[in-house]
Amino acid sequence: DETGKELVLVLYDYQEKSPREVTIKKGDILTLLNSTNKDWWKIEVNDRQGFVPAAYLKKLD
């Protein structure tokens, strides 16, 4: 059920640097789980959840 889920576009590649982070690729469109922290957003990638720098993402309307 995708209702109410926010999507984000990945602006730059990011390689995870800790187990709490996930790797993302430029151009991916992913589900945003939590954006309350202005610097690190929690997203879902391939059934994995983790954090990436918010500056690497853009919210889609």
Rank of each mutant, 00 (worst) to 15 (best):
D1F: 13
V52I: 03
N46E: 14
V22E: 01
N34Y: 06
D61S: 14
N34R: 07
L57R: 00
E2G: 14
D13E: 05
R20H: 13
T3V: 13
E16Q: 12
A54I: 04
G4D: 11
G50M: 07
L60D: 03
L7S: 07
D61A: 13
K17C: 10
T23L: 02
N34Q: 10
D1K: 10
L32M: 04
W40L: 04
E21Q: 11
Y56V: 11
V45W: 08
K59F: 07
R48L: 06
T36K: 13
Y14W: 09
G4P: 14
I29L: 07
D28S: 13
D39Y: 15
L60V: 12
T23Y: 03
V45K: 15
I43N: 00
N46Q: 14
K26W: 03
K17I: 07
V10P: 00
R20L: 14
W41F: 04
K5N: 09
E6D: 11
K25D: 03
W40G: 01
V22F: 07
I29T: 06
N37W: 07
V45A: 12
L30P: 03
V8G: 02
W40H: 03
A55T: 12
N37S: 10
Q15I: 14
T3N: 12
Y12W: 12
F51H: 05
F51M: 07
L57Q: 00
N37K: 06
V52D: 01
L7Y: 15
N34A: 09
P19Y: 08
T31N: 09
K58T: 09
L9E: 08
A55I: 11
L11Y: 02
D47V: 06
G50K: 02
E6T: 15
F51G: 01
I24D: 00
L7I: 07
V52L: 01
P19H: 10
N34D: 15
V45G: 07
V52P: 01
D1H: 13
W40R: 03
E16H: 07
W40Q: 03
S18Y: 07
I43L: 07
L11F: 02
P53N: 02
K59C: 06
K59T: 06
L57T: 02
V22C: 10
Y12L: 09
I29P: 00
R20M: 12
K59Y: 07
T3K: 13
D39S: 12
